[in-house]
């Protein structure tokens, strides 16, 4: 019995070591560093709450970046989920070449996080890019996608929404697992497609919507590649998401302690919103067989 226990621990050891060394230790170290002044080249110096005090009272860039980040998340996540569900619902029909379409719609999410796609996005929406050329062919005026601070964030948002594949696949799997007899019963009762979707499909999808909501929200808060490659946070910091600010403070300005403090504020925000989502889920997420429902 003891031998088996040791063997089990031995099997687990690589994971535990990885978790401790590459996740837990950096996590706790960054918490410590957030209370220090640390320039990477010399030892950290304890500074108490100075970093947090500066963040909330004197740092206009942080407040701007926080606003931009929250706006980005609140636009991107619902848009992306709605789009993923819409496409999944279409791909749930038995169409010709359905497997090809499913693959084609999933591909962007495989490529999506890559630098190459961000570069491609930059060329598509540049002033003389494909998007404006397309507008020109139908007689519309070109749009200043990146130069106008109002449009720039929206253009970055589109990139994230375009990467809807992973959420779509999960929705598709959930749609296919819904009991067909429920639809048959609804049809017999005279329910149309829209009513069936609203009163049968959606409630049964709520656990998956909830899962996707949490995952997409966490990912959106960590967005980096798109704005870094396409706009570098500009113009006028209109796409300067918090991860870019953390990166600049840590690796361009050597303020590792301050960057850690921003990272912890971001962590608290993500954690807070996740807890709110879990708390609210009791009111809107339906689990089949759950006696509370």
């Amino acid at each position: 019995m003891r031998g088996q226990r040791i063997l089990g621990l031995a099997y687990l050891a690589p994971y535990i070591v990885g978790l401790v060394v590459f996740t837990a230790m950096p996590f706790l170290t960054s918490l410590y560093l957030s209370f220090t002044s640390y320039d990477l080249m010399s030892s950290p110096k304890w500074s108490g709450l100075a970093n947090y005090e500066r963040l909330f009272t004197r740092d206009r860039t942080f407040l701007k970046s926080l606003n931009v980040t929250l706006l980005y998340v609140f636009i991107t996540v619902p848009l992306k989920l709605a789009f993923a569900l819409f496409i999944a619902a279409i791909l749930n029909y038995k169409l010709k070449f359905i497997n090809f379409f499913r693959t084609a719609f999933y591909v962007p999410s495989i490529l999506g996080g890559s630098i190459a796609i961000a570069v491609l996005w930059r060329y598509i929406f540049a002033s003389e890019g494909l998007a404006n050329m397309a507008l020109g062919t139908v007689g519309l005026a070109p749009v200043d996608w990146f130069g106008d601070p109002t449009n720039a964030l929206f253009t970055i948002t589109l990139l994230r929404c375009w990467q809807f594949g992973s959420a779509m696949v999960i929705f598709l799997a959930a749609l296919q697992s819904i009991d067909k007899s429920l639809y048959e019963a609804a049809a017999i009762d005279g329910a149309g497609k829209v009513r069936t979707f609203i009163f049968i499909t959606l409630p049964l999808l709520t656990p998956v919507i909830f899962f996707n909501l949490i995952m997409q929200m966490v990912q959106a808060f960590q967005e980096f590649n798109g704005p870094y490659i396409i706009t570098q946070g500009g113009p006028l910091k209109s796409t300067y998401l918090l991860p870019l600010y953390i990166y600049d403070e840590a690796f361009k300005k050597f303020n590792m302690g301050y960057a850690s403090a921003i990272a912890w504020v971001l962590f608290v925000i993500i954690m807070g919103l996740t807890l709110v989502a879990f708390w609210s889920s009791k009111k809107w997420v339906y689990y089949a067989g759950d006696k509370r429902s």
């Binding site: 930059r122 003389e128 996608w145 106008d148 720039a152 570098q232």
Partner: peptide, 17 residues
């Protein structure tokens, strides 16, 4: 202008057509 430059995204001068 900076606005016109920003409209091209983050592109180096020597990469511009």
């Amino acid at each position: 202008s900076q606005k016109e430059e920003a409209a091209d995204g983050n592109v180096n001068l020597f990469e511009k057509p």
